[in-house]
């Protein structure tokens, strides 16, 4: 048993962010490639619809596999600093993180996007806004409720009434 956990520990230690990221992308690309291979590839003289998707998929798979192999065989001695030049905004991190909160928000957002059409914009948006305010610990429950009503009311007025965007009404139609 201890051998198994030891082996798992070694594998976990070897699975760097780069390897996990590359593995995920390889999995998605493989699924994509299987779809692409059902289409006509054509030739270099008359390329078909699968021409570029197949070439790019193979390129990603080779590059991903090469870098996974490189990291496993020759793990970097120290973490390489990468500068993120692309982030639009800098939010200062500081202290505790909560994966549970993030997962809850992901689930809530996904659920929201799938029920918005059926429940209607006003009710679904009221629920998600209140949930978000509570999740982010915005003051007390009743101030959050008032803030929710103001946010949803204002956005509805501006976008539906002034800018004439037709939101889904769902079961209230």
């Amino acid at each position: 048993m201890s051998n198994v956990s030891g082996a798992l520990g070694k594998i976990k230690a070897k699975l760097s962010k780069n390897i996990i990221g590359a593995l995920c992308i390889i999995a998605v690309t493989t699924a994509y490639l299987t779809q692409a291979l059902k289409l006509s590839f054509g030739s270099a003289l008359a390329p078909g619809p699968a021409f570029m998707p197949v070439i790019v998929s193979v390129f990603i798979l080779v590059l991903g596999a090469y870098n996974i192999a490189k990291e496993l065989l020759f793990p970097p001695k120290e973490a390489v600093d990468e500068i993120s030049l692309w982030e639009e905004d800098e939010v200062s991190p500081g202290g505790e993180t909560s994966a549970a909160r993030v997962l809850a928000l992901m689930a809530a957002l996904l659920a929201y996007s799938f029920v918005m059409d059926k429940v209607g914009f006003i009710l679904s948006t009221t629920l998600i806004t209140y949930f978000l305010l509570r999740l982010m610990k915005f003051k007390s429950w009743w101030i959050s409720l008032i803030a929710t009503v103001i946010i949803v009311g204002l956005t509805y007025f501006v976008f539906e009434r002034l800018l004439r965007i037709r939101f889904p009404t769902g079961m209230w139609n």
Binding site: N18, G21, A22, I25, V28, T29, Y32, Q35, A36, L39, S40, G48, P49, A50, M52, P53, V56, S57, F59, I60, L63, G64, Y66, N67, V80, E82, I83, S84, L85, W86
Partner: peptide, 30 residues
């Protein structure tokens, strides 16, 4: 700013996403 191989992979993924949908040359659904 990130390792070149990662950027190349992300560029590749972007190209693959861009290819989803109806092919404008043959009309095939991809």
């Amino acid at each position: 700013g990130q390792a070149a191989w990662k950027s190349f992979i992300m560029v590749g993924v972007g190209l693959l996403i861009g290819a989803i949908g109806v092919d404008v040359i043959t009309g095939a659904t991809r």
